[in-house]
Write a protein that binds this DNA or RNA. Structure first.
Length: 888
RNA sequence: GGGCGCUUAGCUCAGUUGGGAGAGCGCCGCCCUUACAAGGCGGAGGCCGUAGGUUCGAGCCCUACAGCGCCCACCA
């Protein structure tokens, strides 16, 4: 081939791979070529993944990098297989989180959001979003994520906001959303309600305070126990279990509140556990969900004693007004002590809830909120997983999903913040509610023009729940929606199964008419090298961009993906990333070798020509192994066990292709002629397959090499490897196994005797059988070269004789004359070690054969195998012992 | 209080229906062999958490226990 056909645009092929230029170049080339669009495979089956939207104002952290590496590997794999693969990107407005960030920012200017007012505060957040919103998507490009940016969405863009309103109105009309006065979780710092799952429970060492309420008739008292003494300011009753004999006479009597002119009634209620505390529970209807329920049943008054920051209001009494919860707790105990009503305070271990955004202790609070009636939505969502319309991988996560779904309470969706989708409900002075898609101008019930919109916005997770179909154009019947819904798979962490996955299931089935995705692939958490969760406060977070800068984005992706077994956490040590870089460099150099030996032929030309039919043993071996690896990688990618796929691919590429095939290939390449041509073809085929198999995980380097080697078109859209067309050769695999064992045996001898590699010597080999003899005869030259010998003498038999070393490998005897190599003394200990090892093997086999019932009960083929092992080991041991005897 | 996961080489982890324990990194020795010293070749190192059970045979299946981690939970 003429020199002009040199495939590489850049003629030089450096000895080391430099990721930086390749990574900056190829992303632009791909985007330019339009290959991120599913239309690149217009006739392909649809395969869509909608991104779990990161916070629009955030930056890419290691968890994103990991999740995106898995999504991108999946998408690239499917794209190469010919699917119309769509990775739809986008971001989330992240209500409370984003609002908190902006509030902190304006706090630096000495302002709070109320100083700015709703309108300008929201404008301020939008401005912040515009400034920082592009950062994470830029970082995704840097990591090589092959998203279709033309379809990018944002949870608060016009279309999605419209869809959110439509869903709200729809749920309202179906009576699946309602407004009610309930005890909700209140964050006194964020000043908003939270849903149940937005509360994080944490074990703390608290207290249990015992104090007395005297009877109004002066006949004594009832002692109650509480962990929150301050709430007694809002007590309106005491409850006991109806079956509790201790309090039989107390039920129905009244108690005197020590600080107020108020009487508390003693009620009997089943929820009271007689075993806990004194068996008598103080009842604070406004500040405890249990107490609220009791109050409902017994028609008790609810007294709210806290303001929105959980400070005591006037309802809590002059003495305590203005105090926060914790100092009020102290003050109340003091006051009780003064009144001689405090009995004791015990240490008490219990769990208390914290806000998942700011970690403030959550306060149960009675307030008017919007709730989604979830029960009707859960049933179809549970069924969908039960009959496998959606499948969790690994399956065990379905349990969490079912447990949560089955125990679900109504979802509080209103938030008292400003950043988010404003609730489309209006109220008139008469208290009528008007829920409407469009800006309401009059009360729907009485026609009053004096209406005001609900001040609240919806929970961020409300819009997230609609993400799989709203991003595709719902409620319009778009081509995308028809084609890409349901999505193929959702890659996500177990931590948001309840927040997100379960709700997408509910909403998807209800509004889009089908499950949102066929599979949910759950991945683990990226941890630090010591297995600790990465956290800012602990200071062990690792920046993926920084690592990608030093090792290459491919190296990081490879390291992360290589550790990704379904559901398993990934400990990330920098050495792993460095390992990725080393592997890619190895691939680079293997490609460099192939390139140097192809005489200018391109991979594309080699592939077009097909495999030659005069394949040698090593050729058949590597192609057969390649077929197995292709199947393994396919299985791993399909089942999202990337660790398995990459383990095999790594071992094949480095341990078989580089270490053995390329080394063996040097002989026929040097021989020239037909042998050279044949070997070039096999090298080209295998390398082409390896590059394509690695591409989903190592996109930049493989694309760079694909170009340099002259692959057909772009690697990103190259045909995915098929095991079908490759010749299977179990005989060649056995034969190569023998070659590897024999070569390794000689190398071990050489290494242990510290014989320099440059020192050549002959070996005699007595093959195990005739078949092996033929094989070894055909690869004599290869053994010679790989073991650094000057002769391989095949013999039918060789009696032990003085001055020779003897080893056993693959059932063959390998005999090395020691003359001029090492002295007899040095070889003696080595042969002793061999005898020891072989002897132990033999004894184990014999013990097994002699043990009770083995021969009788084990399968025939297993017994046969053991017998063969015994015979071989016995023969070999005899020979070694005879040899050993000659050492004196 | 319930549930789940993990426990295998110094470290991080594989180990697919039960049939002679593996990888990467680290460590030791030899080698700049014309793809790669970011490399090659070889080596050392493991009562597979503990105790029972099933089985001819257990890292793998069953039971109990221990340690670590995680999730859920309206006993005030």
């Amino acid at each position: 081939m003429p020199a002009a056909a040199e495939p590489s645009a850049t003629p030089e092929f450096p000895k080391a791979y430099d990721p930086a230029p390749a990574e900056t170049r190829w992303y632009a080339v791909w985007e330019e070529a339009g290959v991120f669009s599913p239309e690149v495979n217009p006739d392909g089956e649809p395969f869509c993944i909608v991104i779990p939207p990161p916070n629009v104002t955030g930056s890419l952290h290691m968890g994103h990098a990991f999740e995106h590496a898995l999504i991108d590997a999946t998408i690239r794999h499917r794209r190469m297989q010919g699917y119309a693969a769509l990775w739809l990107p986008g971001t989330d407005h992240a209500g409370i989180a984003t609002q908190n960030v902006v509030e902190r920012e304006i706090a630096k200017e000495g302002l709070n959001r109320h100083d700015l007012g709703r309108q300008s505060f929201i404008e301020r957040v939008w401005r912040f979003k515009e400034e920082s919103g592009g950062q994470i998507t830029q970082q995704m490009r840097r990591m090589g994520s092959s998203c279709d940016w033309s379809r990018e969405r944002f949870t608060m863009d016009e279309g999605l906001s419209h869809a959110v309103r439509l869903v709200f109105v729809g749920l309202y009309e179906e009576d699946l959303i309602y407004r009610a006065n309930r005890i909700i979780n209140w964050c006194p710092r964020c000043h908003t309600a939270l849903s149940d799952i937005e509360v994080e429970h944490e074990e703390v060492e608290g207290e249990l305070c015992y104090f007395r309420y005297p009877f109004t008739d002066g006949t004594g008292h009832v002692t109650v126990a509480t962990t929150r003494a301050e709430t007694m300011l809002g007590d309106t009753a005491v409850a006991v279990n109806p079956d509790d004999d201790r309090y039989r006479d107390a039920v129905g009597k009244t108690l005197k509140h020590p600080f107020f002119d108020r009487e508390l009634v003693v009620v009997a209620d089943d929820v009271v556990d007689p075993e806990f505390g004194t068996g008598a529970v103080k009842v604070t209807p406004a500040h405890d969900p249990n107490d609220f329920d009791i109050a409902q049943r017994h028609d008790l008054e609810a007294i709210d004693i806290f303001d929105e920051s959980a400070n005591i209001t006037e309802a809590g009494g002059e003495r305590f007004v203005g105090q926060d919860r914790f100092s009020a707790r102290m003050s109340v105990k003091e006051a009780l002590e003064e009144a001689r009503l405090l009995e004791k305070v015990e240490a008490h271990h219990h769990a208390i809830g914290h806000c998942y955004r700011c970690h403030t202790v959550v306060e149960p609070r009675l307030s008017l909120q919007w709730f989604v009636r979830v029960r009707p939505l859960t049933i179809p969502a549970i069924d969908a997983v039960k009959d496998d319309r959606t499948r969790f991988i690994p399956e065990r996560w379905e349990k969490l999903y079912f447990d949560w779904m089955e125990n679900l309470r109504d979802w509080c969706v209103s938030r008292q913040i400003w950043w988010g989708h404003r609730i489309p409900a209006w109220y008139c002075p008469d208290g009528h509610v008007t829920v409407s898609m469009d800006e309401a101008v009059a009360c729907g019930e009485c026609g009053s023009k004096e209406i005001t919109q609900d001040e609240d916005v919806l929970d961020t997770w409300f819009s997230s729940a609609l993400w799989p179909f709203t991003t595709l154009g719902w409620p319009d019947d778009t081509a995308d929606l028809r084609r890409y819904y349901p999505n193929a798979v959702l890659h996500t962490g177990f931590d948001i199964i309840t927040f997100w996955v379960a709700r997408m299931m509910q909403m998807g089935i209800h509004f889009a008419g089908d499950v949102p995705f066929a599979q949910v692939a759950i991945h683990g958490l990226v941890r630090d090298a010591d297995g600790r969760k990465m956290s800012k406060s602990f200071g062990n977070v690792v920046d993926p961009l920084e690592l990608a800068g030093r090792y290459g984005a491919d190296a990081l992706r490879f390291a992360l993906t290589r550790a990704a077994s379904p559901g398993q956490d990934v400990p990330l040590a920098e050495e792993w990333v460095d390992g990725g870089r080393k592997f890619i460099n190895k691939l680079w150099n293997a490609s460099r070798f192939v390139h140097q030996n192809l005489d200018g032929q391109t991979l594309s030309a080699i592939e077009a020509a097909g495999l030659p039919d005069d394949l040698a043993l090593a050729d058949r071996w590597i192609l057969s192994r390649l077929a197995t690896v292709i199947e393994s990688v396919e299985r791993g990618f399909t089942e999202y066990d990337f660790a398995e796929a990459l383990r095999d691919l790594y071992a094949f590429t480095w341990g078989e292709f580089c270490d053995w095939y390329i080394e063996l290939a040097k002989l026929p390449l040097n021989a020239g002629g037909a042998e050279r041509a044949r070997t070039q073809a096999v090298l080209g085929h295998v390398l082409s397959n390896v590059l394509r198999l690695l591409h989903p995980v190592v996109p930049f380097a493989t694309e760079e090499l694909w170009e340099r080697l002259g692959g057909d078109g772009l690697c990103i859209v190259a045909r995915w490897p098929q095991a079908d067309g490759l010749p299977r050769a179990p005989d060649a695999e056995t034969a190569m196994g023998a070659v590897v064992e024999i070569v390794t045996a000689v190398r071990t001898f050489r290494s242990e005797q510290t014989i320099p590699p440059s020192k050549r010597f002959p070996v005699h080999v007595v093959p195990a059988d005739d078949r092996q003899r033929d094989v070894l005869a055909s690869v004599e030259a290869e053994i010679l070269a790989l073991a650094g010998l000057d002769a391989v003498v095949l013999e039918t038999e060789r009696a032990p004789q003085e001055g020779e070393h003897r080893m056993v490998a693959a059932g063959a005897e390998v005999i090395i004359p020691l003359e001029g190599l090492v002295d007899v003394e040095a070889a003696r200990s080595q042969i002793d070690r061999q005898i020891g090892k072989l002897n132990a093997d033999l004894e184990r086999v014999r013990a097994k054969l002699a043990s009770d019932g083995f021969v009788a009960k084990a399968p025939a083929d297993v017994v046969e195998k053991e017998r063969r092992k015994e015979a071989e080991a016995a023969d070999a041991l005899d020979a070694l012992r005879a040899q050993r005897a000659l050492f004196g």
